[in-house]
Nucleic acid binder design. Structure first.
Length: 236
DNA sequence: TATTGATCATAT
DNA sequence: ATATGATCAATA
């Protein structure tokens, strides 16, 4: 098994300076178990993900030299590339939806798709598939083949249509009508500490009101399409 | 059993 | 507070 010496030394990694460099780093993760990567970084692996839901994504960020931390910009800011771990089943099909970004209620209606945070993160994505079945302990989950991706014209058009539809509903003050059923590829779901979390904003009448924090997510049916022409798992 | 709504941890 | 990293778990 190839080791990660030179990639992950435990110290802060210098950010990749090009797409090629980033892809080369990501390629070295392929076939590794999460435990192998974590060990190279001298970092522990949780026994389950119930209290470490972001473990794989954060491990990949550190292993590849991501720079964004928790700021609302793509992970590799200079390259304009967003990093997404993608849990897949044994057939390479996504297990879960993919979080894109939180929803800024004041930004809705003020910017176009091209200026949106959603587009900034989706225009170029490094997908890193990883075994995601709950029966596999996190330590043993293996990394698949990374894919550096941009939406096709048709995909982007549908993402924009969803974003427009959802944004129009929010701007019209109908946010409470939005459920996870709305949107073909992009949906809106809660994204908060819990169901009691509130986000304050000024409604269209200028009155202060509040609602649950929400985020944009990509449906698993969309990420399945993204991976459809891609050889995900380098093992059987 | 696929999907929606709820939830957990960390950074700034 | 609100952004990031997501997966869990109840529901349809």
């Amino acid at each position: 098994m190839k080791r990660l010496t030179g990639v992950a030394l435990g110290a802060t990694l210098i950010p990749p300076e090009s797409e090629a460099e980033l892809l080369a780093r990501a390629a070295r993760l392929t076939g590794q178990r999460l435990e192998d990567i974590a060990a190279a970084m001298q970092s522990p692996v949780p026994l389950d993900l119930r209290r470490a839901k972001g473990f794989a994504g954060q491990l990949f960020e550190r292993a590849l030299g991501a720079t964004a931390s928790s700021r609302a910009v793509p992970d590799f800011e200079r390259l304009g590339i967003e990093l997404k771990s993608l849990p897949v089943d044994r057939r390479g099909h996504p297990c879960e939806s993919t979080f894109v970004c939180t929803i800024s209620l004041r930004e809705v209606g003020e910017v176009e798709w091209e200026q949106s945070r959603a587009f900034a993160k989706l225009r170029r994505v490094l997908w890193i598939p990883v075994e995601g079945e709950r029966s596999i302990p996190p330590a043993d989950r293996r990394v698949g083949t990374p894919l550096l991706w941009s939406p096709s014209a048709a995909e982007e058009a549908q993402l924009r249509a969803d974003w427009d539809q959802l944004g129009t509903l929010i701007f019209a003050g109908r946010i409470e009508e939005i459920t996870g059923h709305v949107g073909k590829y992009l949906q809106v779901r809660p994204k908060g500490k819990n169901a009691s979390a509130r986000r304050r904003y000024w409604d269209e009448d200028g009155a202060v009101t509040s609602t649950m924090p929400r985020g944009f997510y990509l449906r698993a049916s969309f990420t399945a399409r993204v991976l459809s022409a891609h050889f995900v798992l380098p093992y059987s």
